[in-house]
């Protein structure tokens, strides 16, 4: 069983600051992490390998510094790491990203053995689109399984896979044939602590570094900004509303008086809420 796990190095969004004047992201000093959603994909792949044998290849597209994230993935127990990096990829939208990644996955298959499952996280925390996974599946003609909460069965003889998938209003149980693309739902497993042996191995391991040509990409027009049908025309901070919140005076009041003043202000602004609250609080 050969699985490829796509990971992305993202800025730790909790620590992003916006320049107050220029409305640009202040990246300096913002630590990077593996996109947290991708760790559920990585653990799912590692668990399958432990059970069925085979190997796990982690793949990351990004700047050279993204090698750190791949090395981190190796410490968790991934068998090999491929960094796809080239300035031609700069400014890729989801369509261009899925082109580059699917080309690299095809090349991984040729180089390290046929790929049975491609795993991705549900989405990234910086782009939040959830579009790259389906894009890779379509380009590689893989059966697509998104929002998977559990792989319930994988028969290596018949090459059939059964999963539970989060759908609207319930769980779909789907059965399909390998090769597949799986996007893992968050909270479905917990990434293992890497072993000491894995940490030592990761420190010494060679990360395979490919540029566009190495990944077999000849159509550079499909990469980066030029390969991206979407164009960001404007980046801006939301305008503050002219009227700020009406503040409830708290000086010289005790808690109950403040609470009463707040309720009065709410109902003063929308008297009809009184009936709604009575209905709801009575359990209707």
């Amino acid at each position: 069983m050969h699985t490829v796990v796509c990971i992305k190095q993202v800025p730790d969004s909790a620590q992003i600051r916006v320049h107050p004047v220029h409305n640009t992201i202040m990246r300096q000093g913002v630590p990077t992490i593996i996109n947290p959603y991708d760790l559920f994909a990585l653990e799912a792949a590692l668990a399958l390998r432990d059970k069925l044998g085979g190997s796990v290849t982690v793949l990351c597209m990004g700047p050279p510094m993204a090698e750190d994230s791949l090395r981190k993935a190796l410490t968790f127990g991934a068998d090999r790491a491929v960094l796809l990096t080239d300035r031609y990829f700069a400014g890729s939208d989801t369509l261009a990203t899925s082109f580059a990644l699917s080309s690299a996955i095809a090349r991984i298959g040729e180089t390290f053995g046929p790929v049975d499952i491609v795993f991705t996280g549900k989405q990234t925390i910086d782009g939040d689109t959830a579009q790259v996974g389906p894009g890779i599946a379509k380009r590689l003609d893989l059966n697509q399984l998104t929002y998977v909460s559990r792989i319930t069965d994988l028969d290596t003889e018949t090459r059939q896979i059964t999963v539970e998938r989060r759908a609207e209003g319930g769980v779909q149980v789907l059965k399909t044939a390998l090769p597949v693309l799986v996007t893992m739902l968050e909270g479905t497993n917990e990434i293992r602590r890497g072993s000491l042996a894995d940490a030592l191995r990761a420190a010494r391991a060679e990360v395979t570094i490919w540029n566009a040509a190495d990944a077999g990409i000849t159509e550079l027009l499909k990469c980066g900004l030029r390969g991206s049908p979407t164009v960001v025309k404007k980046v801006f901070a939301p305008t503050a509303r002219a009227d700020k919140a009406a503040l409830i005076e708290t000086d010289g009041k005790n808690g109950a008086q403040i609470a009463d003043a707040l309720i009065a202000a709410i109902l003063d602004r929308n008297p009809a809420l009184d009936a709604d609250l009575r209905r709801l609080s009575a359990g209707f």
Partner: peptide, 14 residues
């Protein structure tokens, strides 16, 4: 965009 710290306007021009 950027984890929700800014807004961006996107077009599909061509």
């Amino acid at each position: 965009t950027f984890g929700g710290s800014l807004l961006c306007t996107i077009h599909t021009l061509n």
